[in-house]
Every structure is written in structure tokens, then in C-alpha cells.
Design a protein around this nucleic acid. Structure first.
Length: 220
DNA sequence: GTTCTAGAAC
DNA sequence: GTTCTAGAAC
């Protein structure tokens, strides 16, 4: 099995077949899995299951889904949104239990994904992880650069004019790929970082500062 | 997507 | 000399 299709193989099997090291939870229409290479303390993927009337190819990625039937696409994205809300609560409970405070969670899609099958990232905004190793990893999740497209943003496209919808769903690789090569900038304080090790140390400090602040607030 | 590593950057 | 990045291979 290719690395690039592993999510597709998950999405077309029964959740009961997946080991607990992979599967976090599931519903009749989706499954939530642990990202195999988490880029933050919490990092999950929500996958729509492949079952009639949906086909493997239309669920290949966000672009193929959105260029198909708009109502069907909206149905899939709306269902993912419901699952994401549930997952948010569960992550926040775990944040409190393990760390004693809550912090931000980013929910969205990569404009140009590397793996087959639609997957919604649900990732905590610390971006502190041994698995975050290069510029592409970081820039692909940076909330402001544009490569990471929030779920709310995608939902808003359905309410926009048809011409706006059709322009946004192009998700052209040539437009988005250069973002991954942009200079490293802290998404919180906007400072430029000279390299990955410096950025990682800075992100760790930012998160620890937030931890101290939030815990002090809760102790009052 | 990751791993490996040559050569650039320091 | 060591650290770090980026592209090829998988």
C-alpha cells in the first residue's frame, strides 16, 4: 500500500477494522484518525467514509469534491463540520486534563493535499512537535498564509455568488505551491525566523508563555 | 506523505 | 567543522 493512498484505504473499510492506534472515533458517515506524523500536540484527520452514493474519485480531494455536484459537496462538508465540533470539545477536555488549560485549534484543508482522499485537519495551534521538520510542514498549517483553508472559509463559499464559488474551487496548484516556500514567520507575533530550529524554539516559548498566562487566569 | 543526503550556509 | 535546507528516491 502506498503512503499516498493510506487514507483512502481507511475510508473504504469498516471503522471496526482499524486498530485503536489509528482510529479515534467514527460516525455513520465519517471517521476520525490520529495523524501518523502529528505537526502539533493534537493533530487529527476527519475523513468522509466512501459509501454510496459517494464515489472514491469524487472524494479524492477537496477540489474533486467541489467541482462535482454542489449539493452533494455541501452535504459532505457540513457533515465534517458537525464532526469537527464534537472533536473540538473532546480535544479541549483533553487539553484541560493533560495540561490544565485550553488553547487554539485550527480546522481546515490543505489547498493542495499530498495524500489522496478528502481529509479535514484538526490541529492545535501550538505547532510544537518533533514531526514538524521543514518549511513546507510549517507553512502548510500557517493560519494566515492561505495554503491552509479553514473549514469556515470553505463553508462560506457555498453561500457566495456562483462566480466566486467557481473561482475559489479551482484550487490551482500553481497558485498555492509557492506559499510553501515563503519565509518563516511566527503566526502569533509575525516575527521572521531565520530557520526551522529557531522557529521551533520560538513556537515552544510562545506556547509556554500562553500556558503560564492561561493558568494564572484560571487560578484567580 | 517520509527518508536520505549533497552541498549550501554559517 | 557543523548545521541546515531542499531535492531525489521511495
Amino acid at each position: 500500500m502506498s503512503n499516498l493512498s493510506v487514507l483512502r484505504t481507511y475510508a473504504q473499510t469498516s471503522p471496526s477494522k482499524l486498530p485503536p492506534s489509528v482510529l479515534f472515533s467514527s460516525t455513520s458517515t465519517s471517521m476520525t484518525v490520529f495523524d501518523a506524523f502529528p505537526k502539533a500536540i493534537f493533530h487529527f484527520l476527519i475523513l468522509p467514509r466512501i459509501q454510496p452514493p459517494f464515489t472514491t474519485s469524487e472524494l479524492s480531494n477537496l477540489r474533486t469534491l467541489l467541482k462535482g455536484d454542489k449539493e452533494r459537496a455541501k452535504e459532505v462538508i457540513t457533515a465534517l463540520n458537525e464532526d469537527a465540533k464534537t472533536l473540538h470539545k473532546e480535544i479541549e477536555e483533553e487539553m484541560m486534563a493533560r495540561y490544565g488549560f485550553k488553547w487554539g485549534i485550527c480546522t481546515g484543508f490543505h489547498a493542495v493535499p499530498s495524500m489522496n482522499h478528502v481529509h479535514l485537519h484538526v490541529i492545535s495551534d501550538d505547532f510544537c512537535s518533533d514531526r514538524l521538520k521543514n518549511k513546507k510542514h510549517y507553512n502548510s498549517f500557517h493560519p494566515k498564509l492561505g495554503f491552509f483553508i479553514s473549514l469556515d472559509e470553505v463553508l462560506s463559499w457555498f453561500e457566495a455568488t456562483p462566480s466566486y464559488y467557481s473561482s475559489m474551487i479551482k484550487l490551482d496548484e500553481k497558485q498555492y505551491e509557492p506559499i510553501l516556500k515563503e519565509d518563516l514567520v511566527c503566526w502569533r507575533c509575525h516575527k521572521s525566523m531565520k530557520n526551522i530550529p529557531t522557529l521551533k524554539a520560538h513556537l515552544q516559548e510562545e506556547w509556554e508563555t500562553q500556558a503560564r498566562r492561561e493558568k494564572a487566569k484560571l487560578a484567580k
